[in-house]
C-alpha cells in the first residue's frame, strides 16, 4: 500500500504526543500527520482527548511527551511544543477557534477582526510610538486591515452587521465570525474545535461551503474536531479517530467509516462482543506502546 498523501507533505506532524494530567492519561502516544491543503478531521466519542490534542497544538497545554512539528510552505519548520502560546499564532501561524465561542462580545464585529491583526498593526504603528504621534504609515496600515476585515465580512455575510457588538449576533453568525477572526491572522493551519456544534442543517451546509472556500482560495490547511458526521464525511480528506486518548483509526473518510473499531467505539457493541472489542483495543494499546 503506498503511503497516503498526507504523509508526503504534512503541514503538521504530531509525533508520539502524550498528555498526562496527574494520573489521568488524556492522550497516549498519539501520532498522525495533517497534509498540506487537506481538511483533516479529528473525531472520537466524548472524552476521547480531541480538545486536549488541540490545546497541545495551539500551545494552551504543553504535552508531557512528544513532538509537534509545523512546516510552512516555504520550508521553515516550527516545533510547537517549545513555543509560547501566543507565538504559535504569531510566528508559527496556527489559528484556532473554540468549542464554546470566545469572541470579544463587547467589541464590534469589525473590532474583533482588527484585534486579530494585532501583530502586523503593531509593527506598522512602530510599537505604538510612531502611531501615537500620527505617523501616516499607521493610518495606511489600519486602512489596509479594515479592507482585509471587510473581505472576510463579505465571505461570512456579516458586512451589514460590522458595527454591531459581536455579542449581539445570533449563534451561527458568531461561529462564522470566530472563523473569520482566526483567518484574519493569515494562518498556515486553521484548527476548528467543533465548528458545526449548535448549527441547524442549513447553517452547517453554509459552513461546509465556507471551509471548502477557505481551503481553495487561501490555501490554508484545516484541522477540525467535529461530531457532526455529515460535515466530516462531506468535506474532509483525512479522518483520525481517537478513543480514550488512543488513535484507533486513520485514513480517508470511506476507510474510517468501514473500520469495525470505529463502529464499535461510536455505536457501542453487544455484551458478547465486549471481549472482542477489548481485545482489539488491547492490540491497539500494545501497538501504541511499541
Amino acid at each position: 500500500m503506498p503511503a497516503p498523501s498526507w504523509e508526503k507533505d504534512p503541514v503538521l506532524s504530531v509525533e508520539h504526543v502524550t498528555m498526562r494530567f496527574g494520573g489521568l492519561v488524556a492522550v497516549n502516544d498519539l501520532s498522525f500527520a495533517a497534509g498540506r491543503g487537506d481538511i483533516t478531521a479529528l473525531i472520537g466519542p466524548n472524552g476521547a482527548g480531541k480538545t486536549t490534542v488541540f490545546n497541545c497544538i495551539t500551545g494552551f497545554y504543553k504535552p508531557t511527551q512528544g513532538m509537534l512539528r509545523l512546516q510552512h510552505g516555504d520550508g521553515s519548520t516550527h516545533l510547537l511544543e517549545r513555543m509560547a502560546d501566543f507565538k504559535i499564532s504569531a510566528t508559527a501561524k496556527v489559528a484556532r477557534t473554540f468549542q464554546n465561542i470566545r469572541l470579544f462580545s463587547g467589541m464590534t464585529v469589525l473590532e474583533n477582526l482588527l484585534v486579530a491583526q494585532h501583530n502586523p498593526l503593531m509593527i506598522a504603528s512602530g510599537m505604538t510610538v510612531l502611531g501615537l504621534i500620527g505617523f501616516p504609515a499607521y493610518k495606511k496600515a489600519e486602512k489596509r486591515s479594515i479592507e482585509k476585515a471587510k473581505y472576510w465580512l463579505d465571505k461570512i455575510n456579516l458586512t451589514d452587521r460590522a458595527d454591531d457588538p459581536a455579542g449581539d449576533l445570533p449563534y451561527g453568525a458568531q461561529r462564522r465570525l470566530e472563523i473569520a477572526r482566526a483567518m484574519c491572522t493569515s494562518p498556515e493551519l486553521l484548527c476548528l474545535d467543533e465548528p458545526a456544534a449548535g448549527l441547524n442543517p442549513r447553517e452547517s451546509g453554509e459552513l461546509n461551503q465556507l471551509l471548502l472556500d477557505i481551503r481553495k482560495t487561501e490555501g490554508t490547511s484545516l484541522l477540525l474536531i467535529e461530531h457532526d458526521m455529515s460535515v466530516v464525511m462531506e468535506i474532509s480528506d483525512h479522518v483520525v479517530v481517537l478513543e480514550y486518548g488512543i488513535k484507533i483509526s486513520d485514513g480517508t473518510p470511506a476507510e474510517v467509516k468501514a473500520d469495525p473499531r470505529v463502529i464499535a467505539a461510536y455505536l457501542g457493541v453487544d455484551d458478547d462482543e465486549v471481549a472482542e472489542v477489548e481485545e482489539a483495543l488491547d492490540v491497539v494499546v500494545e501497538e501504541a506502546r511499541q
Binding site: G59, F60, A95, L103, F104, G106, M107, H118, G131, A182
Partner: peptide, 21 residues
Amino acid sequence: MPIGRAWEALREDEVACRSLG
C-alpha cells in the same frame, strides 16, 4: 491603536487574545 484594542480585548477574553497571537 493596536495596543488599546489589545487592552480591551484582554478585558473581554484573555484566552482568545493569546490564540490570536
